[in-house]
């Protein structure tokens, strides 16, 4: 075969590969949505789950996922901002910084099940938080922190060094300049990263099965006192999330409608992640336009 023919053949194969990947995604999404969407109803989204009979919903799990997400973002976002600022603004090029960067790299590549097990050992047992929202939120923080930190650092570095000089030459501290000038300018990137991180957290299960637990006790949605055990806001109650629920009913569930519930829950999960992706784009772009508006 001559070179031209090989070239044409290679191009065909490459188109084929690209096509197969698109088909894989399309069939994944198609399967989940076709199987799951018919199952989604107001009842499904709000009713509590059932362990032994059909007709269970995912109301509590959905709430748990959202609450856990909010709580873990509340902990991890300030920490990631602080750590990202350190790396982008204060870290000098030396051995210490190298060690810090290595640590972050290692943390970001740790299997999430290991992070979950560590959370189990330390938060659940050692600190006595038990299987709880709090333990889960801390585990998710560890899981999410390295990527968020890197995102903050990258976004800050995107802002020209000129801007820091401008602030400093006026007698402002580096800290003030970063907080009031650099961060606002880096906001589109930071927000996009945060929303993508939120999507990751929302779908995470391995880090949660031994921290937030695998049970979803009934909640009293009229009781908003965070100290009451039946209150949805109580951070020390066990809280099975949507993703954990899908895993649970598939690996040991005995509900007759387990497959349908999983499909419905998966569809909700996928839609949520899609929503996070779209939001990340839209909000990032909008803030960017606003910041650079002329």
């Amino acid at each position: 075969m001559d070179a031209k023919k090989i070239d044409r053949l290679a191009t065909t194969i490459l188109y084929l590969i690209a096509g197969i990947i698109v088909i894989i995604l399309a069939s994944l999404l198609g399967y989940i949505l076709v199987r799951g969407l018919p199952h989604i109803s107001w009842h499904f989204l709000t009713a509590p789950s059932q362990s032994f009979k059909a007709g269970g919903g995912i109301g509590i799990q959905l709430f748990n996922s959202l609450y856990l997400l909010v709580l873990s973002m509340l902990i991890s976002v300030p920490l990631a901002l602080g750590a990202g600022i350190y790396l982008a603004e204060y870290a000098r090029e030396n051995k210490l910084t190298e060690i810090i960067r290595t640590a972050i790299e290692i943390l970001s590549s740790l299997p999430s099940v290991v992070v979950g097990l560590f959370g189990f050992l330390v938060f659940v047992l050692q600190f006595g938080f038990g299987f709880s929202i709090l333990s889960g939120a801390l585990a998710l923080t560890m899981f999410n922190l390295p990527l968020l930190t890197r995102n903050v650092e990258d976004s800050l570095r995107q802002v020209s060094f000129d801007q820091r000089e401008a602030g400093l030459a006026l007698g402002l501290s580096r800290w003030e300049t970063v907080i009031h000038v650099i961060i606002p300018e880096a906001l589109p990137g930071i927000i996009t990263g945060m929303i993508l991180g939120a999507g990751r957290v929302f779908g995470e299960a391995a880090a949660l099965i031994y921290t937030a637990g695998q049970s979803a006790p009934a909640l009293d949605f009229t009781n908003w006192n965070p100290l009451n055990i039946a209150s949805p806001l109580n951070p020390l109650r066990p809280a099975e999330t949507l993703a954990v629920h899908i895993w649970k009913i598939n690996s040991e569930g005995i509900q007759p409608d387990a497959a349908a519930v999983s499909a419905g829950a998966s569809a909700v999960l996928i839609l949520a992640v899609l929503l996070f992706n779209v939001l990340a784009r839209v909000i990032g772009n909008r803030i960017y336009k606003k910041m650079t508006a002329v």
Binding site: I21, V22, I24, L25, L28, L29, Y31, I32, L196, G199, R200, F202, G203, E204, A205, A206, A243, V244, I246, W247, N250, S262, A263, S266, L269, I270, V273, L274, F276, N277
Partner: peptide, 17 residues
């Protein structure tokens, strides 16, 4: 976008499928 969506799909959903 296809690649980005594939990253975003949670692992339990992959497991379920």
């Amino acid at each position: 976008p296809v690649i980005e969506l594939l990253v975003g799909i949670p692992s339990v959903v992959y497991g379920f499928i």
